[in-house]
């Protein structure tokens, strides 16, 4: 059992961090709800990092490392489905961004306004829809990511993919890895804030009430991260459902705790915490939310008892 990064993984992450730093938003730009970072998206598309799971000697664990690292950044890009779901379903290299939707292909999906392909989980099969951006209707949402929906599939190129289990398994792993990264990014911001901000003559972070809740938040970040990496490494349905369930269950309390210690500043667009809060809330509701994931984890782990 090895929890350390290989030299190759370290090199990938360090290059990824360089790309993230190089496309970081200018601190003086106007506050925005949820800006999509085209610059980072293009860098990622060219760098091949999102195809790491297809490379010899690499696999889904490396893809999850990439997804987690990217989600720590304030920049919003579609990476999780491209890195973890696309390769498993045999999507051609470069066909991205990937939007995912459950039940109904016409439901709003995150990243759809910029997507190259939509994968719809229809229960017994996956419908792969080649997306024409002109056909996507943007959907207003407060939950970051550009959301959009299709009004009809008429005239769009579609294809049935049989392997719905793979889509769901990788989707769960992807959302767990992305949530873990979002949590880590948000926590790092708030830890810096409570070191700087003073009240009653001391830094906020000197108050035990604050230390204790941030310590619990740190435990959540670590737990989510390792569960997500384990799910990517084993690529098993039970691990994937467990990692997604755990992250989704922890998100609401985690988000409230971090905002609590950012005070009113944390409610404004001038403090970037909302960029992660929005994403976390959206992720916590995917695939039916924590309860649905937990039931799936039980079913995958104890199929006879659950039946």
């Amino acid at each position: 059992m090895n929890y350390g990064l290989t030299e190759d993984q370290q090199a990938v992450l360090s290059e990824l961090e360089r790309l993230i730093a190089g496309t970081a938003p200018d601190g003086h730009t106007e506050p925005e709800f949820a800006p999509y970072c085209e610059a980072l998206d293009q860098e990622l598309a060219q760098s091949g990092f999102l195809d790491i799971a297809r490379e010899d000697g690499f696999g889904p664990l490396d893809a999850a490392l990439v997804v987690e690292c990217l989600a720590r950044a304030p920049q919003i890009v579609e990476a999780a489905a491209s890195a973890l779901v696309g390769p498993a379903l045999g999507l051609p290299v470069g066909l991205r961004p990937v939007a995912l939707v459950e039940h109904d292909p016409l439901k709003p999906a995150r990243f759809l306004p910029r997507a190259g392909v939509l994968l719809a989980d229809l229960g017994d099969r996956v419908l792969q829809v080649t997306v024409d951006p002109d056909r996507v209707v943007p959907v207003d949402s407060l939950f970051a990511y550009p959301y959009g929906r299709l009004e009809t599939l008429d005239g769009l190129e579609t294809k049935d993919v049989a392997d719905v289990a793979t889509l769901r398994r990788r989707w769960r792993t992807a959302l767990a890895a992305e949530a873990a990264g979002c949590m880590a990014g948000a926590l790092a911001l708030v830890v810096e804030h409570v070191k700087d901000r003073r009240a009653f003559g001391r830094p906020l972070g000197a108050f035990q009430a604050i230390q204790h809740r941030l310590a619990m938040a740190a435990e959540t970040v670590e737990s989510c991260k390792w569960l997500a990496f384990r799910a990517a490494w084993s690529d098993s349905e039970a691990d994937a459902a467990l990692a997604a369930a755990f992250a989704q269950k922890r998100i609401p309390q985690f988000a409230f705790d971090l905002h609590q210690f950012s005070g009113a500043m944390g409610l404004t667009l001038e403090f970037s915490l909302h960029l992660w809060t929005y994403r976390l809330r959206a992720l916590s509701g995917e695939l039916g939310g924590a309860a649905a994931q937990a039931r799936q984890a039980a079913l995958a782990t104890w199929p006879e008892a659950a039946a």
Partner: peptide, 15 residues
């Protein structure tokens, strides 16, 4: 949901 974050901050924090 997003507005409710202010509930434990405004008008005297939960702490």
């Amino acid at each position: 949901y997003l507005h409710a974050f202010s509930e434990t901050i405004a008008g005297g924090t939960a702490e």
